[in-house]
Nucleic acid binder design. Structure first.
Lengths: 219, 219
DNA sequence: CCTATCTGACAATCTTCCTTGTCAATATCT
DNA sequence: AGATATTGACAAGGAAGATTGTCAGATAGG
């Protein structure tokens, strides 16, 4: 009849401790291991050539634990994608917000951090620039959300956001597309140019979106 | 012993006429049917969900004829992609060259034709904007060639091309990325804006690459 | 020490699709 | 009309991988 230990800490509810961790913690750790393994494997062979088995082996876990945390391969892809983007965007936002008030400096700071990271971590970069396209509607939806965040870090919308910013969305889309394309080329060619040059080229496209905010009387 | 008809035309070499066509013609027609069917099917369900069987059924041919013309699915994808792009680019180039001498008008003419076509033919558009990414190195290589052509139609490089146009390639890449991204969004949202608005937005990004040609003293 | 839980290895099943092969029906040429 | 190339329908073979199931060994709690 449920002899629950009331004396111990609340976190170890009704689960046995293994390796000093509660069931939830162990599962969370496995999940994270799978995500990190996925980033490695996807970076090596690409998402569509990566098998569940290969990811599990890289994570040193068995398939059983794959299905414990993810419904299917696609779910892992989305989780891995968001994992990468979330941390990247958080850092970009921090770098950008340090330059509050100066849109040009903000852009440059965020872009510099972005491309520096891409060069430091080629595998995640490869995957999440190249392989993320056209997998499925669910993935595309995630990608859309992510690129919106990306765009708002680079060029934050005016505080008093106009109800329908139709033209602005087009410019944001184009800006993100330009940055991603340049990044993709840079990565796949093995980083031939220095970061500064890439930042300068992408900044030129970001300025298009930036100046779009001011030309608002026309619509 | 090879009783070849020397009196008939040279094209009907050693093949029996079927439906009034020589073997080569019949095969070429089947190949074309497969390509057109592929565009339809890919547009409906996407390349990676399209089976060989489905394409063959759409073409009203059997699998046997698939392997007659293509080594595998990927070969058909590439052929279909190039089929679409070749005709599109030819028309864009014609529209652009009609405005020779005026870079701005040239850009606008080519973009207008591009987006008009996209709206007229949603299925090919969907496939060849969205699904073409990250299939394989071979497909990526084709894509690279195509986007180079695309970029040169929009913003032709100076006649006396400088030996190493490093920065220019980055700008071209970004420009194409911006245009494609905007096109993709436009198509997938069901063409909410009029063509003129899309052309105006994309032209803003093309001008970045255009003006890149003149800023050449810096490097 | 003993029991119940947890883990890891691995096999079995199942599905899906590619690819090749067979065979009868059809169309053309002589 | 007869011989042969050509076509279309369809099935058999085969490969790859996802997903589930089994089972023995390891580990923590009592």
């Amino acid at each position: 009849m449920r002899r629950v230990n009331l004396d111990s800490m609340a976190s170890s509810r009704n689960s046995r401790l293994y390796a000093g961790m509660a069931a939830e913690e162990r599962q969370a750790e496995r999940r994270l291991r799978l995500i990190q393994a996925a980033i490695e494997v996807y970076g090596e062979v690409g998402y569509r050539n990566a098998t569940v088995k290969a990811v599990c082996e890289a994570a040193e876990l068995t398939e059983r634990y794959f299905y414990e945390s993810f419904a299917n391969s696609e779910a892992l892809l989305i989780a891995a994608y968001m994992h990468v983007c979330d941390t990247l965007h958080a850092d970009m936002a921090a770098a950008a917000d340090a330059c509050a008030g100066d849109p040009e400096a903000r852009m440059t700071a965020a872009l510099t951090l972005y491309f520096t990271r891409l060069r430091e971590h080629p595998r995640p970069a490869r995957v999440f620039l190249l392989e993320i396209s056209g997998i499925s509607p669910a993935v595309d939806a995630v990608k859309l959300t992510v690129s919106r965040t990306f765009s708002e870090i680079l060029v934050p919308p005016p505080d008093i956001a106009p109800h329908a910013d139709r033209g602005q969305n087009l410019l944001s889309t184009g800006m993100v597309g330009a940055v991603i394309s340049i990044a993709l080329r840079w990565v796949s060619k093995g980083y031939p140019q220095p970061v500064e040059e890439i930042v300068a080229a992408t900044a030129a496209f970001c300025r298009v979106a930036l100046s779009g905010h001011s030309h608002r009387g026309k619509v």
